[in-house]
Design a protein around this nucleic acid. Structure first.
Lengths: 137, 137
DNA sequence: ATAATGCTAAGACAAGTGTCTCTCAGAGTC
DNA sequence: GACTCTGAGAGACACTTGTCTTAGCATTAT
């Protein structure tokens, strides 16, 4: 059996988020930040989550200080990328365009973002994408 | 402790997908369809997944025939909606616009979809979103 | 009626998740 | 040195997910 792919469950993601936001931190520091954002975990819980993230290679730790200082190894971008990819694959037949459409239809954008999107699209039509290279149609 | 929210894990989602596609089916029928799409599950596995989906209220079963006939209760749209919402909440600060941007930047759209999106956006700017009303600062 | 089949029910079981309690080693304090 | 505070480590424990084995009931073919 194919070993299950590495995943980042929700609880771990919450820890990662404060790590991204703070850059790094000890268990206690992160615990504090998490409490502020509503999480009521105990010290041990946060430590366990960091431990697991560490085993998965998503965070690194350094013990030059008294306590371990954790630092994210994976970026928010990467996690987003993976999650989006998986969502598109699983529910949008691998076609990101369908997701975009769905998003635009069900969640109207604030005007400024609408403009931004429009601009992006226009640029895109000028410089066509396509798999291989710069293009040479 | 707050009871965990109802989720649809990947394996169950695969079953749901064939249900959406076929409209309904018995365990054996669904098993067949799943095999065709590459899943090598045993009969019992599919039965278990349907059972779990049933407990969660995602599918309904009817036993007028010899075997239970399962039918989806939740629609693909609803599942998509929930997954997207959760993704946006967890990784895009609740702003779908950010996701749209990300998608457009990292996954170039085929031209026809690009046009479609553009049209949508344009319509949107003309007919501003309902409820909220577009305010003039 | 019997045997052969198909179906569901029940449960097993390992790995993954969400959370925590306990214990112990160091550092700082009196 | 004895006491206390902090933090790391180990492990616990219940529930979820992915998959399956078995036993037993209903249906059908012989």
């Amino acid at each position: 059996m194919a070993k299950r792919p590495v995943t980042i469950p929700d609880a771990e993601l919450d820890v990662l988020k404060v790590l991204w936001q703070k850059g790094q931190g000890t268990v206690r520091e992160l615990l504090g930040a998490l409490h502020e954002s509503g999480r009521t975990w105990s010290y041990a819980t946060v430590a366990t989550l960091l431990e697991r993230l560490s085993n998965k290679g998503m965070v690194a730790s350094d013990r030059s200080e008294l306590a371990f200082v954790y630092r994210p190894v994976i970026s928010k971008q990467e996690v987003r990328q993976k999650r989006v990819q998986s969502l598109v694959d699983k529910l949008y037949k691998g076609e990101p365009g369908l997701l975009v459409m769905h998003l635009l239809k069900s969640h109207p954008l604030p005007p400024d973002q609408a403009v931004e999107v429009k601009t992006l699209i226009e640029q895109m039509s000028n410089a066509p994408p396509k798999g291989g290279a710069k293009k040479k149609k």
